[in-house]
Design a binder for these strands. Structure first.
Lengths: 209, 209
DNA sequence: GCGATTCTGTTAGCATTATCACAGGATTGT
DNA sequence: ACAATCCTGTGATAATGCTAACAGAATCGC
């Protein structure tokens, strides 16, 4: 029962969490699946079903305690602890990620950055000093890196993930526009500014303009 | 038949496209659904089924012509033309998007940037001069903006999308960690550096470390 | 206190998506 | 030319995910 939770459900949880955090910020203490569904454009039944995979968080006749549910979702998603990130590739995009402050709010902490270019290694960017990739195995271990963020050019992406995997990183977020191979034990996900746009245009293309 | 294409299918097409572009770069001219599936960790049947929604692109006994399929997918996704973007919010993240060069390769062109802060309006960032949001209705029309990119703080995000919608933008990419309301005719999607991490940690949390 | 109302958690039925398996066309080797 | 092999496109089937509907529990108004 507790096992085999559909991935789509897991993908919706952060959306619920965001909406709840917004409500909490507005001073809302209680919310029904109906109200939350309207805010998120999701059916109330879906919200209740999704949450039922993990426990009983609501009160009949009242709804959900917003703060409590935020706490539960954060726990379920593993956001009730710190996660240590390493950024590989300090180009335009890597630099932006390093300087972006929004990670810390959800417990993500950048603890290392790597590059091969001697023009950037040794320099401080955002919260860390950029190190040569040769240092990766040592630093990943000493800094306890959980997640690797790949922001190198597509042509260097496979080598970057190979090095990360070799160094012991089990989860990778890939910003490079490339299809990458990792062992089954490693969790990898592709993101990036362009990806979201590419499927969006499918729905736009028929409209005039 | 041609209508009612599942959204999951549309979301996979960019992945296929990326893999094919990589193959083309390696000098591969022909690929079977089997080979492509191995590269993408997807079953060959899924690839064939997905493509069959849009036409017959393969040759029995041979497979798919890589270049031809790239062209077809780009056409299907609406990537065979230019798309004009406007960035709203020139903070840390907005600045990075403006300076990021990777959009142009797939036909995305940033043609405007807006902010309310007089410290940044009037200054050139990346390819454009930042303008005050008051100019938005005029500029969206004159520059023919198709897609709005919201990179303001969460607290200002709803106002930013309202202004974009008001100005006539029908598609929005939201980087702000907020749940936003738009009319049904507007297509909006939430992305952002933290979102992908938030569901990733669900799968990581049980592992030691 | 009690009937009417509210709202959750869950089951059962429905709809959508993915996989299997094969017919049929194309290619290759001999 | 023909047999063996390869590979697509697609119906049939299995699996998955969604929605509607309701029992049961809490709340509210009077």
């Amino acid at each position: 029962m507790r096992l085999a939770i559909p991935e789509v459900v897991v993908l919706r949880l952060p959306e619920y969490l965001r909406a709840l955090e917004q409500l909490a910020g507005e001073g809302v203490y209680l919310v029904s699946s109906q109200e939350l569904g309207e805010k998120l454009q999701v059916t109330p039944a879906q919200i209740r079903k999704d949450l039922s995979y993990f426990g009983h968080f609501g009160k009949q006749g009242k709804g959900y305690d917003v703060k409590r549910l935020i706490g539960e979702l954060r726990r379920i998603l593993g956001l009730d602890r710190d996660w240590r990130l390493a950024v590989v590739g300090v180009g335009n995009l890597g630099r932006a990620l390093l300087r972006y402050g929004g990670f810390s709010q959800q417990g993500f902490k950048i603890v290392a950055a790597f590059d091969t270019n001697p023009k950037v290694t040794g320099k401080k960017v955002g919260p860390v000093v950029v190190q040569d990739v040769a240092e990766m195995p040592k630093v990943v271990k000493s800094e306890g890196v959980h997640i690797g963020v790949v922001s190198v050019p597509a042509s260097a992406a496979q080598e970057a993930v190979d090095r990360l995997v070799q160094a012991g990183v089990r989860a990778i977020l890939n910003y490079a526009p490339a299809t990458l191979r990792v062992p089954p034990s490693v969790y990898i996900r592709h993101v990036g500014p362009v990806s979201a746009l590419e499927s969006m245009t499918f729905y736009l293309k028929d409209v005039k303009g």
